[in-house]
Simulated scan of single mutants.
Amino acid sequence: MTTLSGLLDGTPLWVIGIGLVLSMAIAAAIGWFVRRRLVAASGEREKSDQEGYIVSGALGLLALLLGFTFSLAIERYEGRRALVLEEANDIGTAYLRAQILPSPHRERVSNILVVYTDNRIALAQVHGSGSERDGLVRQNDRLLTDLWAETVAVMPSIRDAEFSGAYIESVNAVIDMDTARKVARGLHVPSEVFLLLLVYQIVSAGVLGFVLYGRHGIALATMLCLLFTLSLLLIIDVDRPTSGGVRESQTPMLLLKDSLASQPPKVFNRTVEGVASPELTDPAAF
């Protein structure tokens, strides 16, 4: 099953599509050949109602399996999409709470979070696996280590402050969200489900080849096989968190990046030695 999962995740979709179409064509040809032999042996050429029931049942169950598998893939996709928004909120909260820290820790933590946000966006947009992704993952882990090291360094100066607990909580949320997104990217539809679906789709093609004979029957069988193949390819694509074409939007993280760029630490310096800054007294600033 591990081998099948690796093939589904690493093989180009067009290769999977061609392989599946060829397999279904062979199965349909076998079904057509068996039909001819039976007709030649019995001389019976009329369709029976039983054949219609068998085709309806086989295609109905195939559609049910496709719908069930698509639901599993979409559920995982929606989970990854929700985590993007949650992570953007956690990083934004940690950034704002970091502005209460004394200098130079405030600037250091703020800079780490800005670089970390850029890294998370790049990591989500890189396609497939390889040296580029591995480098971004190493940078990601190093930034989290730096974030926690800076938090440890600032603790002696804020240990008795009321906001220290809230700040620690926000940093923990950022670190926990990293683990949550890594786990979410590794979740796939079980390989057993895809194996059953592939076998059932090929067998259904054989049933179509047995029942739908003649020019119109072949055209109808071909259309159905192509539709089912396209549906399965879409499911496989959605189930590829790091290499598929259907990937979760990074809009919340991009909005966060713009927000952090427009709010450097100096923006929050509203008072200097108890005197309000000009922005607070200038109506044109609002």
Results as ranks from 00 to 15, higher is better:
residue 82 A to I: 09
residue 43 G to T: 00
residue 147 L to V: 05
residue 146 D to L: 07
residue 72 L to K: 10
residue 65 L to R: 08
residue 80 R to N: 08
residue 132 E to S: 12
residue 62 L to I: 03
residue 74 I to Y: 13
residue 66 L to N: 11
residue 134 D to I: 05
residue 89 N to D: 09
residue 117 T to C: 01
residue 48 S to I: 11
residue 110 S to H: 10
residue 143 L to W: 06
residue 99 Q to S: 11
residue 29 A to D: 09
residue 25 A to Y: 09
residue 152 V to L: 13
residue 96 L to V: 12
residue 91 I to A: 00
residue 107 E to D: 11
residue 113 L to I: 01
residue 37 R to S: 13
residue 128 G to Q: 00
residue 157 S to Q: 15
residue 41 A to F: 07
residue 84 V to S: 14
residue 50 Q to H: 08
residue 58 A to G: 03
residue 152 V to D: 10
residue 95 Y to R: 08
residue 31 G to V: 03
residue 140 N to D: 14
residue 51 E to N: 11
residue 122 A to L: 13
residue 27 A to V: 05
residue 129 S to E: 11
residue 121 I to A: 06
residue 124 A to I: 00
residue 147 L to K: 09
residue 73 A to M: 01
residue 160 D to L: 15
residue 90 D to Q: 11
residue 89 N to P: 05
residue 54 I to V: 14
residue 58 A to V: 14
residue 149 A to R: 06
residue 136 L to H: 01
residue 118 D to F: 07
residue 157 S to E: 09
residue 70 F to T: 02
residue 96 L to C: 08
residue 59 L to V: 02
residue 160 D to V: 11
residue 84 V to W: 11
residue 38 L to M: 15
residue 137 V to K: 08
residue 88 A to M: 01
residue 94 A to W: 03
residue 152 V to E: 13
residue 39 V to T: 15
residue 105 H to W: 14
residue 43 G to M: 01
residue 54 I to H: 01
residue 109 V to P: 04
residue 95 Y to P: 03
residue 136 L to K: 02
residue 146 D to K: 09
